[in-house]
């Protein structure tokens, strides 16, 4: 019987919502092909404080849990700690499919693990149950996609799943726990978190490009009025420095910790070059409204709209109207 492994990432004593999405999809695929679903969770040790993780995994209908325990599993996940233990679990329980939620660490673990187990890695993976159980892996960078039939997988797939789960568990599975303990190795423990700079927004994220110039104040007013997030590109900051302009301290858009299925963006004053440098952070289901931007149509793998009218008037209207 094939194995499906789902990596469960925890943060601030909760399971990441995108990992739960991966677990939900893992359940659907396992039921379809008759595979065993393993949830792989790294913990320093199993204690009363993290026992609720195991209950939550059971509620999301995993068949078995593999707990990776090691005293070195402190701090954020890293290849030198978590990666090596996940590889050990994947060696003992070789996966047909290895799933992860869309978190920054998954972009690190995915390629590394696929190299270890000779698998195929893809981010931006969408599972469509209606299409006879096909897994569609989109590559925004190259503008291509590969579709895998889940019943016909020859090489292990290591996949980052887009979106977050809407599944509400009603009952708890009886679950078997397998414990994998770390070998006594020296792990680098020298790390520190600097600051939080991710972008969270319920609605739209406005990104200011290098041609934003004097419209930045209007964009700030719009973001404040609608409670949207405002950030900028690296090229915007460079442009302001080159021209010795005073500029507001906007966060730089580099968020990859976006676990929502569909994100809405307003891109203002973008050039084609700066769009291509950030487009890999977008997921195929995004909506983009492009204002005063020059982006070739072939680069847009999203539902997009170009505004060609008076941008000052549009910003004013958007600021005043309740959406």
């Amino acid at each position: 019987m094939a194995n499906i492994l789902v990596y469960i990432e925890t943060e601030n004593n909760t399971i990441s919502p995108s990992s739960l999405k991966a677990l939900t999809i893992g359940r659907s695929i396992s039921s379809k092909i008759g595979a065993t679903l393993y949830a792989v969770i790294p913990l320093q040790q199993i204690s009363d404080s993290n026992r609720n993780f195991l209950q939550q995994i059971a509620a999301y209908k995993a068949d078995k849990t593999i707990t990776l325990t090691s005293p070195f599993l402190n701090g954020p996940p890293r290849i030198s700690t978590v990666g090596k233990m996940v590889h050990e679990a994947a060696t003992r329980f070789p996966p047909a499919i290895f799933l992860m939620g869309n978190t920054p660490f998954s972009y690190e673990l995915g390629p590394w693990l696929s190299g270890k187990i000779n698998g195929i890695y893809s981010k931006s993976t969408i599972f469509d149950e209606k299409q006879a159980g096909k897994l569609s892996c989109a590559y925004i960078d190259s503008g291509t996609k590969t579709t895998y039939n889940i019943k016909d997988i020859e090489q292990p797939l290591v996949l980052t799943i887009e979106g977050f789960t809407t599944f509400v568990p009603e009952s708890i599975n009886n679950i078997e726990n397998i414990s994998v303990e770390a070998k006594n190795e020296n792990h680098s423990t020298n790390f520190f978190i600097n600051k939080l700079d991710f972008i969270y927004s319920e609605n739209y994220i406005i990104i200011a490009g290098s041609n934003t110039r004097d419209k930045i104040e209007q964009l700030q007013k719009l973001a404040k009025a609608q409670e949207w997030s405002l950030c900028c590109t690296k090229q915007y900051i460079l442009h302001q420095i080159e021209n010795k302009n005073k500029h507001p301290a906007l966060p730089k858009f580099s968020s990859i910790d976006d676990s929502r299925e569909k994100t809405n963006y307003i891109l203002y004053g973008f050039t084609a070059t700066e769009f291509s440098s950030i487009k890999n952070f977008f997921s195929p289901g995004s909506n983009c409204l492009l204002i005063d931007s020059e982006i070739p149509k072939q680069d847009l793998f999203f539902n997009s709209a170009f505004f060609s009218g008076d941008s000052a008037k549009l910003l004013q209207s958007l600021t005043q109207r309740v959406l």
Binding site: Y139, K145, T146, F301, N303, A305, F306, S308, K313
Partner: peptide, 19 residues
């Protein structure tokens, strides 16, 4: 490998169409 599907790119020339 297949190309990604292209989404339609709308052209909006008035504020009301944007809303």
């Amino acid at each position: 490998v297949e190309p990604l599907p292209k989404y339609s790119v709308a052209k909006l020339n008035s504020v009301s169409k944007v809303f």
